[in-house]
Design a protein around this nucleic acid. Structure first.
Lengths: 181, 181
DNA sequence: GTCTATACCCAGATAGAC
DNA sequence: GTCTATCTGGGTATAGAC
């Protein structure tokens, strides 16, 4: 798992790309192998079956979530800004893999559905720690999910105005803090 | 189109149910026919191909959107309340068909993706008319999309606290109205 | 209008050479 | 570790009876 042979990584990358741009139906072993520049046999050497390929991508996302949370917690603008910004802008691999796994989840893969929930839970935790308002944190994660859902359907980054959303969140937090006192 | 023979309606209903509960992969002609209590041949009489079946569901959603917008615009609690409430609670057929079409969209169906965008646009229009604040309207639709995305992945209604969200929106609108003056 | 039977095709998986 | 060739199963579609 630590330093995977390049063919394996290329396969995962190609699989991701096809899932994002063409959907789950198009992501056949043939298509993945071709896009990765290897043969179907070679692909099946690294992933013994289609299910293992799915699991491989799910496991990959699980790793990326850890790294994403790390970046989120250390972002100079804060967790809310990071989450909304990356949802809309595809700053790293993470966003593509997330969308790809979402496609798997909708096609019937239950492990894919589970890891998406894990991402949401981790996001909520980070955001809640920052804003100290669980209701707002839930809303922020929901907004992020909405942006991702859009990207998944439109097959690419969305034009959502993140600054506008951040401003709304800021205003909301200020209002609620005031009322609390 | 006006008074479809029951077999057609049953097929569409079964197709919807399988898509929602088991994903696109499971929604084969065999499975749909069986769930609808008809034979594959009978199913193919009403829908000449799998693609036509997809199109049939997309067209059905397009009709339901009109009815949904109608209910939204006349809801005693208002459009925002209606949208958030129905996203989380599956009040009518609409929500199930919406999730089903979302599954088609993720699997690669472009017409399905288009009609989902139409729904979002129509929702935005209704909400924006009510709240008279485009930024907030966009956020509300995004929240709704987030809730739907959750439901799609979890394969059923979500436990999101709609009252909590509505309260947030209310506070936000009040704050922004005040600042405007 | 709905059925059964069957043909066709392609995605997934296996075998074995290199 | 990667290839080509081949087999199998199942999903889609057609033919034709009732």
């Amino acid at each position: 798992m630590a330093r995977p042979p390049t063919a394996r990584a290329k396969a995962l990358s190609a699989f991701t790309q096809i899932l994002v741009t063409s959907g789950e139906r198009a992501a056949t072993l043939d298509a993945v192998a071709k896009a990765a520049g290897i043969s179907k046999g070679g692909l099946l050497y690294h992933f013994g079956s289609k299910e293992e390929l799915n699991e491989g991508l799910v496991a990959h996302l699980r790793e990326l979530i850890r790294a994403d949370i790390e970046r989120m917690n250390t972002d100079p603008e804060g967790a809310v800004a990071y989450l909304l910004r990356t949802s809309a802008a595809f700053e790293s691999d993470f966003e593509n893999v997330y969308i790809a796994v979402a496609a798997l989840a909708q096609s019937g893969d239950t492990q894919a559905a589970e890891v998406l929930q894990e991402a949401d839970d981790a996001w909520f935790k980070s955001v809640a720690t920052e804003v100290k308002d669980d209701a707002v944190a839930r809303a922020v994660v929901l907004l992020s999910d909405g942006i991702y859902a859009h990207a998944a359907v439109q097959r690419g980054p969305t034009g959502h105005d993140v600054d506008e959303l951040q401003e709304l969140i800021k205003q909301l937090l200020a209002t609620r803090k005031q009322q609390e006192q």
